[in-house]
C-alpha cells in the first residue's frame, strides 16, 4: 500500500529548506545517486538508489517537472536484494558435489574444491534469480520542510536517512514527541521546560 491507495503507514522527518534554485542541483544529485541494477555476475547483494515516483525503472529527472503540482517532491528509493538463500545454496552445492565425485570416482571433494564449487554454484544461481525489489515512497513538502517516508521499518528508515543525506547534503531529523511540539509552534524554552516533568503513577492514590 502506498501514497496513492490503501491504508498508509509512515515515518515523519523534518529537513531544512533548500536554497533557491534547488531544482537543478537536486536533479544532478538524484542522478548521481540514482538506482543501478545489480550485476548477477558480481558479489553485490544489495543496491539502493533513487527512481522516478511513477516508474521504478526510470532514473532521470527534469528540473521543470521535478515538483508535483501540489508542491511536493515525490520520489522512490528502490532497494534491490539479490541473495541466494543459504539452504538453497547448500542443497545445489551438495548435488553438484555428488555429481563431481561420481565423475571423478572419488568419495568426496577436498575443502578447497568444495569452496570453489560453492562459488560457482552461487554465481549460476544468482544469474537465474530475480532480485527482490522494494520501493520506499518519499513525499517531501519543501514548503514546510516536512517529509514522509512511507514505511515504519527501522531498517528502511536508517537506509533512507543515509541515502538522503548523501544525496542532498541536508541533515534530516525524525519527528518525535518533542519535535511535534516545535512544529506546532511551542517555543523551545517551553519544550525545554518539559524536562522537569516526571512520569505519573496514576494507579497509586495520592498521599
Amino acid at each position: 500500500m502506498g501514497i496513492l491507495s490503501g491504508p498508509v503507514s509512515y515515518l515523519r522527518f523534518v529537513v531544512p529548506s533548500p536554497a533557491d534554485g534547488f531544482e537543478n542541483a537536486f536533479c544532478e544529485a538524484l542522478a548521481q545517486h540514482a538506482f543501478h541494477e545489480i550485476d548477477p555476475a558480481s558479489d553485490v547483494e544489495r543496491a539502493a538508489g533513487w527512481v522516478q515516483f511513477e516508474d521504478a525503472f526510470a532514473s532521470e529527472w527534469d528540473p521543470q517537472t521535478l515538483l508535483h503540482a501540489s508542491g511536493h517532491l515525490l520520489l522512490r528509493l528502490r532497494v534491490d536484494t539479490l541473495k541466494v538463500p543459504a539452504g538453497t545454496l547448500k542443497a545445489y552445492t551438495a548435488r553438484e558435489a555428488r555429481d563431481r565425485c561420481r565423475e571423478l570416482q572419488r568419495d568426496k571433494l577436498a575443502k578447497r574444491e568444495m569452496d570453489v564449487l560453492k562459488l560457482e554454484v552461487k554465481q549460476r544461481l544468482r544469474k537465474r534469480s530475480l532480485p527482490k525489489m522494494a520501493l520506499l515512497e518519499v513525499v517531501w513538502n519543501l514548503g514546510t520542510g516536512e517529509l514522509r517516508l512511507l514505511s515504519t521499518s527501522k531498517a528502511a528508515a536508517t537506509l533512507f536517512t543515509d541515502v538522503f543525506e548523501k544525496t542532498f547534503g541536508l541533515q534530516i531529523r525524525p519527528v518525535g514527541l518533542l519535535t511535534v511540539l516545535w512544529l506546532r509552534g511551542m517555543s523551545e524554552p517551553e519544550i525545554d521546560g518539559l524536562s522537569a516533568l516526571e512520569p505519573e503513577r496514576l494507579h497509586l492514590l495520592a498521599r
Binding site: L4, P7, S70, V139
Partner: peptide, 28 residues
C-alpha cells in the same frame, strides 16, 4: 513516537491520479 500506521482515509471524490494524490496528501 506518535508514528501513524495503517491510516485509513475517507473515500475520495477525485478520479484522476494526480487529483487523487493531492486529495490523499490533504487528508493525511
Amino acid at each position: 513516537t506518535l508514528t501513524l500506521s495503517g491510516v485509513k482515509l475517507p473515500t475520495l471524490l477525485a478520479g484522476e491520479d494526480d487529483q487523487r494524490l493531492e486529495e490523499r496528501l490533504r487528508l493525511i
